[in-house]
Simulated scan of single mutants.
Amino acid sequence: MSQRRGSPEDDIGRRAQRMKQARERPGLSPLRGLGAFGMIGWSISVPTVGGAFLGLWLDRNLPQGFSWVIALILGGVVLGGFIAWAWISRESREEEDDNGDH
Rank of each mutant, 00 (worst) to 15 (best):
M1S: 12
M1V: 13
S2K: 12
S2N: 11
R5K: 11
R5N: 12
D11R: 14
G13H: 15
G13V: 14
G13A: 14
G13K: 14
R15T: 14
R15W: 12
A16L: 14
Q17P: 00
K20T: 15
K20E: 15
A22M: 13
R23M: 10
E24V: 01
E24R: 13
E24T: 05
P26T: 06
P26D: 02
G27R: 11
G27Q: 07
G27W: 06
G27I: 03
L28F: 09
S29H: 05
S29N: 04
L31M: 07
R32Y: 12
G33K: 00
G33Y: 00
L34I: 05
G35D: 13
G35Q: 13
A36W: 11
A36V: 14
F37R: 04
F37P: 00
G38L: 13
G38V: 11
M39L: 14
S43V: 01
S45C: 06
S45N: 08
V46P: 01
V46I: 11
T48E: 03
V49F: 13
G50Y: 05
A52Y: 14
G55N: 04
D59W: 01
R60M: 04
R60E: 07
R60W: 07
R60T: 02
R60F: 05
N61P: 00
N61Y: 01
P63Y: 02
G65A: 09
G65T: 13
G65E: 12
G65Y: 05
S67H: 02
V69H: 00
I70T: 10
I70D: 07
A71M: 05
A71N: 02
A71R: 03
L72P: 04
L74R: 05
L74H: 05
G75I: 02
G76N: 04
G76I: 04
V77R: 02
V78C: 08
L79Y: 03
G80A: 10
G80V: 08
I83K: 08
A84W: 02
W85C: 03
A86Y: 03
A86E: 06
S89K: 12
S89E: 14
S89F: 05
S89H: 06
E91W: 11
S92Q: 03
S92A: 00
R93H: 04
R93G: 01
E94I: 09
E95C: 08
E96A: 13
D97T: 10
D98W: 09
N99F: 03
H102K: 07
